Amino acid sequence: AMDSYIMLLGWSPMIREVLLNKRMPPMQVDPYVGHSPSARGVSKQDLQKLIHWIDVGAPRGEGETDPLEQHTPTANEWVLGQPDFIVQGPEHSIPSTGVLDYYYNDIELPFADDKWVKAVQYRAGDPSVLHHLITFVSEPEEDFWGEERVSTSVSRRFVAGYIPGKDNVYEFPEGVGTLIPAGYHLSMQFHYVTNGQSTVDKTQLGLYFSDQPLPKEQRVQAVGTRFVLPPNTPELALQASHLIDENIVITGVRARMNYRGKKMRFMVEAPSGVSQQLISVPAFNYGWQPHYLLDAPVSVKAGSTLHVIGALDNSKSNPTNPAPDLEIKFGFNSWEEMFTGYFTYYSSFD
């Protein structure tokens, strides 16, 4: 953490490098297409100011106190009060160095009755290494991928995603919740980054229940396609679509590709043929796959079509590509490749 001016000064050359080569900020969505508070970027004006400050030696300024030294991290508390149920995540031992693949865990639940979740909060065991986390509600025999293993377009029960740098509290809109049927379990996908120190993460997920069944269920529509990616291909254009048969309200989106993911756009085409872009990810980064909550939910009429449009890059120009000379088939493992867009939504009665 940048906990002093001296620390910031020491890291300033690296900060300059990762800003100019666009490794940071990592959530690189197009600022002119939709907006999401999860897409935390740096404006051109702020970028220019920061680079100029570093180029002149990163002067300290005239203040007597160092605000970084005075900063007190926010306590990792339950913001909405004690949850009705706390999901204890598995204990993951994280090494000091190396690139880690995803961890997948199914968490059994003791509920004898259906539960409607109206709000959730993640509490990371070690937020310095927990990079992101996705949680689905799964049927008894399902794993994390569920029916996505056999279908390119499927609606699933979605809880929420975790991203670093925020309190990760999610209160669903009035009358909206995630249904956990009796006998179902949670399927969680963890992604970690190493930071030079070995550690153990045991993340918690707090669930807040509604006293009564809720009229609208939050779900996620997966829209994907199957393919074979030829070797040494700088851009394999792909698209997938799904016809909506009911009125819905879209609240967020998420792009899912692996190391060869290049770009993805999320669009809605109305029955009239008029299209609206929701979010565009022109510089996909496998290491950062957040769930982008929309600033303003989008109402979609029955008969509309959801589109995901983008490309994969299996060339040497892709810095994350481990083997550009190989032909890559579709699959859910990191050494395979995916092209799936997720639309979080709930049914609308309007």
Rank of each mutant, 00 (worst) to 15 (best):
R40T: 11
M188G: 02
Y104R: 02
P290I: 03
V159L: 14
S155Q: 11
N247H: 15
Y345R: 04
E174V: 02
N314T: 02
N195H: 09
A222R: 06
G331V: 02
T135S: 08
F266R: 02
V308N: 08
G61A: 00
L109R: 09
V150F: 08
K166N: 14
P324D: 09
V268A: 11
L130D: 00
D313K: 07
H185G: 05
Y292H: 12
P59Q: 01
I15E: 07
G161K: 00
A222M: 14
Y286I: 08
N321F: 05
S347N: 14
E235F: 02
T65S: 15
D211P: 06
V274W: 01
G63Y: 06
L80Q: 04
V42P: 01
G10N: 15
M27N: 12
S151A: 13
V281C: 06
V228L: 10
K44Q: 14
Q45D: 14
F209D: 05
G61R: 01
M267Q: 15
S93K: 13
E171T: 15
G63I: 02
K22F: 10
Y208N: 03
L109H: 09
V274Q: 11
W288R: 07
K216C: 06
L243E: 13
K262G: 02
A283W: 10
Y184R: 12
P67K: 08
V79S: 05
G252Q: 04
N76T: 09
S12C: 07
D143E: 10
E171S: 12
F136M: 08
D66N: 00
P110T: 12
N21L: 07
E62H: 14
G125I: 00
E148F: 00
Y5F: 15
L306A: 04
G98M: 04
I94W: 05
V129G: 07
G165F: 03
L179D: 10
P83N: 09
D30C: 11
N314F: 03
F339M: 01
I6P: 00
V220H: 04
M257W: 04
V281P: 00
T225H: 01
R256H: 15
L133Q: 12
I248L: 11
D101E: 14
K216H: 14
Y208A: 03
P173Y: 06
